[in-house]
């Protein structure tokens, strides 16, 4: 049976990790490759790197760090931020990433998903969606790092993205992000009921119970978090033992 993936997410700005300054156990926490190796050696099931400044500044993912990280780790590795062309896919995959995630650019040009999927295979095309709850109770797609509301329905966009060829979805709740009050179970459940590709929950982790809750209730395939891991609030090994005791399949 497939294990639920526990995925630390690292935000990189100008080749340095933004979150993670209080990280224990390793010396230079700002280095993406040092943090990547730390997680790879400590039971993370996958790593996600976002070059968070890339999209907003219209700049390309700084490829240099992708290779440095890929050389250090031996778990799957997903990279996003500023990806807008097939050439970007090619460059990032060639530097050693296994998956490339698209967000804002796919909203502007949905065919990018289709073309990338046909060329590189659905398994390496990840559609990342930032969703915000609207007054009418639906969720809307937000782009450019949380700055622009597109008015698109997030659940519909998720379904459309899979039809176009996305092999995985990362669903980030803007409302839950950073609140540490748990993942957006409603949003995630709606999406997992409608698509047949892996769905990764993002945004809202504060304590171990939140991981259990989203795994159990929303049927997600992976659970992504940033600060709780980077600041050492939750240890991945402890988390996995906890989940296993609760009957969730995890890789120990």
């Amino acid at each position: 049976m497939l294990a639920k993936r526990i995925i630390p997410c690292l935000d990189v700005r100008k080749g340095r990790v933004v979150k993670g300054k209080k990280f224990k156990d390793i010396v230079d926490v700002d280095q993406p490759e040092a943090l990547g190796k730390f997680y790879s050696d400590n039971n993370a099931d996958e790593l996600v790197f976002y070059d968070i400044t890339a999209s907003n500044e219209g700049r390309k993912t700084s490829l240099e760090f992708v290779k440095r990280v890929a050389d250090e780790i031996n778990i799957p590795f997903s990279v996003g931020g500023g990806v807008s062309t097939l050439e970007d896919f090619n460059d990032i995959l060639r530097k050693g990433a296994d998956k490339v995630s698209v967000n804002s650019s796919a909203v502007k040009n949905p065919l990018l998903i289709k073309e990338a999927s046909e060329k590189y295979g659905a398994q390496c095309v990840v559609l990342s969606i930032d969703a915000k709850k609207d007054k009418d109770g639906t969720w809307k797609v937000i782009i450019n790092g949380g700055r622009k509301n597109t008015g698109l329905d997030a659940v519909e966009w998720a379904v459309k993205g899979v039809e176009l060829g996305a092999g995985e979805l990362v669903i980030n709740s803007i409302d839950a992000d950073g609140m540490k009050e748990g993942y957006d179970i409603d949003l995630l459940s709606q999406i997992t009921q409608k698509v047949r590709v892996p769905v990764i929950a993002s945004g809202g982790a504060g304590k171990m119970e939140h991981f259990y809750e989203v795994a159990e209730k929303a049927d997600v395939d992976g659970i992504l978090a940033a600060s709780v891991f980077h600041y050492g609030e939750i240890n991945i090994n402890d988390l996995k033992k906890y989940l296993k005791n609760k009957g969730i399949e995890v890789r120990i």
Binding site: L2, R5, D45, Q123, G222
Partner: peptide, 10 residues
């Protein structure tokens, strides 16, 4: 089950 078979399996 979902296809591709993607992830960690025992």
């Amino acid at each position: 089950l979902k296809v591709p078979h993607m992830g960690w399996n025992d």
